[in-house]
Design a protein around this nucleic acid. Structure first.
Lengths: 205, 205
DNA sequence: AATTTCAGCGTACACGTGTAAGCTAAACAT
DNA sequence: ATGTTTAGCTTACACGTGTACGCTGAAATT
């Protein structure tokens, strides 16, 4: 049938295999910088040296993974924002969606969380960029929805993201019974921040 | 002069040398689990195999470091609490002290932050224990000082610690001009949480 | 003075790592 | 049909790792 693009198709297929292999290797006991070229190649089903046909470095693969993780997260938040109506709903729906994401793609979230404080400055910068995206979009939402000045909205969004991401980290090691508790606590904490920001805004900026 | 305890003294001295060597190896590019026994031994000035006379594992050394880091932090917060008078002062003094700590002992704080999301479940648990100490003491302070119910105080303290620790992570990569900004922002965010918790308490728990 | 303890040493091993060099064969362009 | 490109392979190398084994010499005990 279609044998026109077979060559490029194969290459893209192998590239995806490498990415999948790397993601599969990223469990709770393995950091990105500890993933070895040889292991990835082994799982991907290619020779170690063939890896270089697709990525210059193991680091280049790492940055690719961080980018994909950030993309997934951004898409998620867009879909969540579509389901928001009232103010109380915003926090509840957002947190629920985030929790679902962490639990469903725990390897991906762990990747972000780990490399956020990891050993590679490049990786840290890449993760920071993704978190900044996350924070910026939340800031925009707050400015538009709650009619708050940019400066206040930024601080509120920043605090909220810090709380949510930290809670996400707890989820990774949490048992099933703890998850509900963490979720509820996080919602109330975000509500605290929301309330505090609103009150402070009208008092002394 | 004193030759009575020379034997044990020497051993303790070497043990301290090992700990110092490990701390010295812990810069921005090296995680605890990536510190090699051989490198530590090299820096400490002993043969690789002599390491085992002091620690069973490299992990046992790691846990020792986390404990020492937590101890340092706990002592710091005690000294900070002594300088607190009014309510506004509490947040300001605490954050300032924390920032000083992170900047002065950045290797130690980096250790805590890294292993908090690191690859070893034992290390994660150890760091979590220290953070829990931190949170518990803050909770007690809030209960006693602000007369809030335990449940509210816990959520407030937990949110505050999450914000402060996240900010500490930013400080590690921040330039000198950014530090002031991060410090101020953090104070305001903590004030948001404080205010929000107070307001929420009187409304709907 | 004789004996026991033990902190530290040197040697040796097997293992996983990144990557350089040159080859094969199949997809492509001509 | 012929020549070129290139994804993937095999082989090979030097390096750092954890740790097992047996030894030494001095401090501590008797």
């Amino acid at each position: 049938m279609s044998q026109k693009v077979t060559r490029e198709q194969q290459k893209q297929q192998t590239r995806q295999n490498i990415i999948n292999a790397a993601l599969a290797s990223l469990d709770a006991t393995k950091s990105l910088s500890a993933v070895s070229l040889r292991e990835v190649a082994r799982v991907a089903g290619i020779a170690p040296t063939s890896f270089y046909r697709h990525f210059k470095d193991i680091d280049e693969l790492g940055l690719t993974l961080v980018d994909e993780a950030g993309l997934t997260l951004r898409q998620l938040m867009r879909s969540a924002r579509r389901r928001i109506s009232s103010e109380r709903g915003a926090i509840s729906i957002s947190v629920d969606t985030f929790v679902e994401f962490v639990l469903a793609h725990n390897n991906v979230f762990r990747l972000l969380l780990r490399e956020h404080t990891g050993t590679s400055a490049d990786f840290r910068a890449a993760v920071l960029r993704e978190i900044q995206h996350f924070t910026d979009e939340l800031t925009d939402y707050i400015v538009f929805q709650e009619k708050k000045p940019e400066a206040v909205a930024q601080m509120q969004a920043d605090a909220m993201v810090k709380i949510v991401f930290s809670a996400g980290g707890e989820l990774l090691d949490a048992s099933v019974v703890q998850i509900e508790g963490i979720t509820e606590r996080t919602k109330r904490q975000l509500y605290m921040v929301h309330f505090g920001a609103t009150a402070l805004m009208s008092k002394r900026i």
